[in-house]
Amino acid sequence: TYYTVKSGDTLNKIAAQYGVSVANLRSWNGISGDLIFVGQKLIVKKG
């Protein structure tokens, strides 16, 4: 599943929405910090 980042989104918010961990979101998307951008597509695997 792909999720497109919207204004106001955070990794924590997206992780909670999908029932996954922030660590997994980072791993699946090659993100090291907490910086995400509006319009960015993130890979999300269902929890």
Rank of each mutant, 00 (worst) to 15 (best):
G47S: 14
D34R: 06
T1W: 13
K6N: 09
L42G: 00
I36Y: 04
N29E: 00
T10C: 04
G19Q: 13
L42A: 01
I36S: 02
T10H: 05
Y2D: 06
A15R: 02
A15F: 01
T4L: 07
K6D: 05
K41L: 15
Y3S: 02
S21W: 04
V22W: 03
S21F: 05
I43V: 10
A23F: 08
A16G: 09
A16F: 13
V44A: 04
K41W: 09
K41Q: 14
D34W: 09
K13Y: 12
I43R: 08
K45Q: 14
G47W: 12
L25D: 00
I14L: 07
V38Y: 06
K6Y: 04
K6I: 14
K45N: 14
V38T: 09
Y3Q: 02
G39A: 04
G33I: 06
G33F: 07
N12E: 13
V22C: 06
V38D: 07
W28E: 03
T10E: 05
G8C: 06
I31P: 02
L42Y: 02
K41M: 15
I31T: 05
G19D: 12
Q17K: 11
T10L: 04
G8S: 06
D34I: 06
A16Q: 12
G19N: 14
G39Y: 03
R26C: 07
A16K: 13
N24W: 11
A23D: 14
A23H: 14
T4Y: 12
G39L: 03
G39K: 04
N12Q: 14
L25K: 00
F37M: 10
V44H: 02
V38N: 07
S27P: 01
K46T: 15
V44L: 07
Y2N: 06
R26W: 04
Q17L: 15
A15D: 01
L25G: 00
G33E: 10
T4Q: 09
S7H: 14
V22A: 10
K46V: 15
T4P: 03
V22L: 10
S27W: 11
F37K: 08
V5P: 02
Y2A: 06
G39Q: 04
S32P: 10
S7P: 13
I14G: 00
K41V: 15
L25N: 00
I31Q: 04
G39N: 07
N12F: 14
G8F: 06
G39I: 01
G33V: 07
K6T: 10
T4F: 09
K46I: 15
K13P: 02
I31M: 10
A23R: 08
G39V: 01
L35M: 14
L35G: 09
V22G: 04
S32Q: 14
Q17H: 14
S7E: 15
G33S: 09
D34M: 09
A23L: 10
R26K: 12
I14V: 08
L42V: 07
K13N: 12
S21K: 07
Q17D: 14
L11W: 05
L25W: 00
G19P: 02
D34A: 07
T4R: 07
K13A: 15
Y18H: 12
N29R: 00
K13C: 07
A23G: 11
N12K: 13
D9A: 02
Q40M: 12
G30F: 12
T10K: 05
R26S: 07
A16I: 12
Y3D: 02
G19E: 10
N24Q: 15
G30R: 09
L11N: 00
K41H: 11
S21C: 06
S7M: 13
S21A: 08
V44R: 01
S27L: 15
T10Y: 04
L42R: 00
I31W: 04
S32V: 14
G30K: 11
Y2T: 10
Y3I: 08
D34F: 09
V5G: 02
I14P: 00
G30I: 08
Y2P: 05
Y2I: 12
S7N: 12
L25I: 10
T4M: 08
I43Y: 09
N12H: 13
K13T: 14
K6E: 13
S32C: 08
G8H: 07
V20R: 02
V22F: 04
D34G: 07
N29G: 01
V22D: 05
I14F: 02
Y3N: 01
N24I: 11
L11R: 00
I31D: 03
S27R: 11
S7D: 15
I14R: 00
V22Q: 06
I31C: 03
L25R: 00
T10V: 05
V38K: 07
W28F: 05
K6R: 10
R26I: 14
V38F: 06
S21T: 14
L11I: 10
G47P: 13
D9N: 02
G33K: 08
A23E: 12
W28D: 04
L42W: 01
Y2R: 06
D34K: 06
A16Y: 10
I43M: 14
A16C: 07
A16W: 10
G33D: 12
A23S: 11
I31G: 03
I14A: 01
I36P: 04
W28I: 05
N12C: 06
N12A: 13
Y2F: 11
T1P: 08
S32G: 10
Y18P: 00
T10G: 03
Q17T: 13
N29W: 01
D9L: 01
V20H: 03
D9E: 04
S32W: 10
G19I: 05
K6P: 01
G33P: 03
I36K: 02
S7K: 12
G30S: 12
W28V: 04
K45Y: 15
V20Y: 03
L35F: 14
R26N: 05
G47F: 14
V20W: 03
N24L: 13
S21H: 07
N12R: 12
I14H: 00
D9I: 02
G30P: 05
L11Q: 02
S32D: 11
L25Y: 00
I43T: 08
V5E: 00
G19Y: 08
K41Y: 09
Y18S: 06
S21E: 09
R26H: 05
I43W: 12
G19R: 10
V44T: 06
G33N: 10
Y18D: 01
L11T: 03
K41C: 08
A23Q: 13
G47H: 14
L35P: 07
I43L: 15
Y18W: 14
L11A: 02
S7A: 14
N24M: 13
S7G: 10
K13W: 15
S32I: 13
K6A: 10
T1F: 14
L35Q: 13
T1N: 11
N12D: 14
V5Y: 02
K45E: 12
K45C: 06
G39D: 07
N12W: 13
N12Y: 15
Q17M: 14
L35Y: 15
